[in-house]
Amino acid sequence: MGKTTGRKKRIVITTAALLAIGGGAAFAYWTGVGTTSTAVTSGSESALTVEVTSLASGVLTPGGPGQSAEITVTNPGKGVQKLNNVVVKVAESDGSPWAAITGCSKDDFSVAATVDNVTQIEGGKHVKGTVTIQMVNGNYNQDACKGVSVPLYVSVN
């Protein structure tokens, strides 16, 4: 009996010690700080595109009514792009000065553009506006402007 009791006592004490050690380990933890960094390359957006429908038929005359056309500014990209302004001027299709005809120049015309009151265009969306051209009434002979095809250049940024 003494051996069995001693053995049982050792088992009970060992089990209690293991539980105490194991139980204490369950509440222990390490503290630490972790960091990470990564870089994502941003892409460049596609340029805004501009489309102008044909001007209304008719002729421009000094001081006469202007002609208007619809303008559409489209963001073909995926992200939002800011529309700062729309500029329209009498110029060649690449924006270079119009090769004026003797006696008729860009100064004989007034041009303007208006676009919906939008400052940002979401990807794949567009905004609409109007381009208007009018012949100014100069205090000089403007016969050289008769029948002239006046090129308009529209740019957005």
Rank of each mutant, 00 (worst) to 15 (best):
M1W: 04
M1A: 14
G2V: 11
G6K: 15
R7V: 12
R7H: 13
K9W: 10
K9D: 13
R10N: 11
V12I: 13
I13L: 14
T14P: 01
T14H: 02
T14I: 09
T15D: 01
A17I: 09
L19M: 09
G22T: 00
A25P: 02
W30C: 07
T31G: 11
T36Y: 15
A39D: 13
A39T: 15
A39R: 15
T41R: 10
T41I: 11
T41C: 07
S44V: 12
V50S: 10
V50I: 07
E51S: 15
E51T: 15
T53C: 03
S54G: 11
L55R: 03
A56L: 05
S57A: 14
V59K: 15
L60D: 08
T61K: 11
G64E: 03
G64T: 09
Q67R: 15
Q67K: 14
Q67I: 10
S68L: 11
V73H: 00
T74F: 06
P76M: 04
G77S: 10
K78C: 04
V80N: 08
V80A: 12
Q81N: 08
K82E: 12
K82R: 14
K82P: 13
K82M: 12
L83H: 04
L83F: 01
N84T: 15
N84W: 06
N85P: 08
N85S: 15
V88M: 02
K89L: 05
S93H: 04
S96K: 06
A99H: 10
T102W: 00
T102K: 14
G103T: 01
C104Y: 02
F109V: 01
S110P: 07
V111A: 02
T114L: 02
T114N: 06
T114H: 03
N117R: 05
E122D: 13
G124P: 07
G124Y: 00
K128A: 06
G129Q: 05
V131H: 07
M135Y: 00
N137F: 11
N139V: 12
Y140A: 15
A144K: 06
A144Q: 09
K146C: 10
K146G: 09
G147M: 09
V148A: 12
S149W: 10
V150D: 06
P151G: 02
P151N: 04
Y153M: 01
Y153L: 09
S155W: 06
S155C: 05
V156R: 01
